[in-house]
């Protein structure tokens, strides 16, 4: 498989978990594994990348805080100078900018939303989640290409160590000195309830219909001693606060119980909850992808089931 280049995603000086998964995926593809660290001062990040054979560092002040334009230029430059066969980028928020941007700049094809990658002769066979997780597309790619890999698709262990630890410096491209994007400010999630600490979550999706029906879920949560969580559309509609959002752009939770109500199970939602110990899902669509990760499911109408269940729980727990 020649050479695989991994784009290293970071939060401050911390390597994002998906990066170790990408390094593991790169290792499994075979061949040399290179990792690109594009940062003002790449040293601290580079020191965390024991899974790479060669750590490529590109230093420039414009590389943090994150700007899509700057990181696209950095990755495109690394592709040009290192000419890897395969490039792996996390299918994260930043990955959307970076993978497609670098694909366009380098003229390489992009295969997005990858769940699995396998070498096949000189080609790469990838499985990708499409149609909101209802279908899986298998693609076959010959020649140089970029793959955007979903967080959680690979185990990170094999990507944390075992590399040769060589270093190489890359010259930053001139474009970094003439950017059209500027950083203004950043914000962390608002303080308040922390759903990542809850042992039990009742999580509400768009199937709940409207804010007037939330009390059905709140009643169930109370009977279970659970906190309320939500999918993104529920939060975007203003029915519940942002701190309660589970998924790609929300929180990642691992409660003992995740009780999903009226949630379809889009990949961006599953990313935040698939590792819960017990998942029970209520969804009237038997083909909803939430049932792929749930241990138990029912197609009962939530408006019938929730009151019936709350009543029984109250009777059982007094």
């Amino acid at each position: 498989m020649g050479k695989v280049l991994v784009y290293v995603e970071t939060t401050g000086d911390t390597v994002a978990p998906v990066t170790f998964e990408l390094l593991a995926a790169a290792r499994a593809l075979g061949g040399e594994v290179e990792a690109l660290v594009a940062a003002p001062d790449p040293g601290l990040v580079a020191a965390q990348l024991g899974g790479a054979d060669t750590i490529l560092t590109m230093a420039h002040p414009a590389l943090a805080p994150y700007l899509p334009e700057a990181h696209v230029a950095a990755l495109a430059e690394a592709i040009k100078s290192r000419n890897p066969d395969t490039v792996l980028v996390g299918s994260t928020s930043t990955g959307i900018d970076v993978a497609a941007g670098a694909a366009a700049a380098s003229g390489r094809p992009l295969v997005a939303y990858c769940l699995g990658l396998e070498p096949d002769g000189g080609a790469v066979v990838a499985r990708s989640q499409v149609y909101g997780g209802k279908l899986v597309a298998t693609t076959r790619t010959e020649g140089p290409a970029i793959f955007a890999v979903l967080p959680g698709a690979f185990k990170d262990a094999a990507g944390r160590a075992g590399g040769k630890g060589q270093r190489a410096l890359l010259e930053p491209p001139a474009a970094l000195g003439a950017l059209h994007t500027r950083f203004v400010s950043a914000s962390e999630p608002e303080p308040g309830i922390d759903i990542t600490r809850a042992e039990r979550l009742v999580s509400v999706g768009r199937g709940i219909g409207g804010p007037e029906n939330l009390e059905l879920a709140e009643e169930l949560a109370q009977a279970l001693g659970a906190e309320i969580a939500a999918s993104r559309p529920v939060v975007d509609s203003g029915w519940l606060p942002r701190q309660r959002q589970v998924g790609k752009s929300g929180m990642t939770v691992k409660p003992k119980l995740y009780f999903a109500v009226g949630i379809s199970g889009a990949p961006e939602h599953l990313e935040g909850m698939r590792d819960a110990e017990l998942i029970i899902a209520v969804n009237s669509d038997a083909a909803a992808p939430i049932f792929e990760v749930a241990q138990y499911g029912t197609t009962c109408d939530l408006f019938d089931l929730l009151p019936a269940l709350s009543e029984r729980l109250k009777a059982a727990t007094g």
Binding site: H180, T181, R182, F183, V184, S185, A186, S187
Partner: peptide, 11 residues
């Protein structure tokens, strides 16, 4: 971004 983080950028 993940974890509920956000940034304001000027383009």
């Amino acid at each position: 971004y993940s974890g509920g983080r956000m940034a304001v950028l000027e383009v």
